[in-house]
Amino acid sequence: EFTQKQQDLLRHILDAFSKYRIPQEVTKKLLQQRSSVEENFLLLTETATSHVQVLVEFTKKLPGFQMLDHEDQIALLKGSAVEAMFLRSAQIFSRKIPSQQSELLEDRIRHSGIAEEYIVPMFNFYRSIGELKMTQEEYSLLTAITILSPDRSFVKNREAIDRLQEPLLEILQKYCKLNHPDDPQHFARLLGRLTELRTFNHHHSNMLTSWRIN
């Protein structure tokens, strides 16, 4: 069972995660009718920028984060922003949003100047996340765990970050045992998605380069 401390921490992170949303005026534009490659590109840029802002708000609420060295806070956010963005997109694409909305979003992504070689791994990842049928608890914990990764570049005090990440991994592991007794590999599968998520840092920087060239 969860200790009281673990229950409180999970509830706190779930609450912060429920506010981790892009403002409606940005999402509304995303769901408007088809637009040109340039408009799609600008919409995705605006969405990515807005995502970073809401990601910072979520991260500030992670217990202990604001006590970290200020430059380490920036290193963690810089190091995880892209991964958190793709994890969040995967959640949205695997959620039960009306199919014509997800088709519109998918169409917008496919027609925004992103090279096909980056579209394929992106939608493969969304599908592999979708297959896990993750709950809100799993998404919120996995997002927090991704942000609080001690091995990000430019981080000075790795132990302080590890002390914040460790309890979250324990809660997630216990949560998986409690909620997936029939699937002892579920926790390992979730961590496996984090590894897949890391590949998007590389994809994303190449995507930006190809965008600039186009």
Partner: peptide, 21 residues
């Protein structure tokens, strides 16, 4: 607007709670 800023600038501003788009 924020979208012209680099990632680090957006993060620094957001950490300080400033969102002057």
């Amino acid at each position: 607007p924020a979208s012209n800023l680099g990632l680090e600038d957006i993060i620094r501003k957001a950490l300080m709670g400033k969102y002057d788009d």
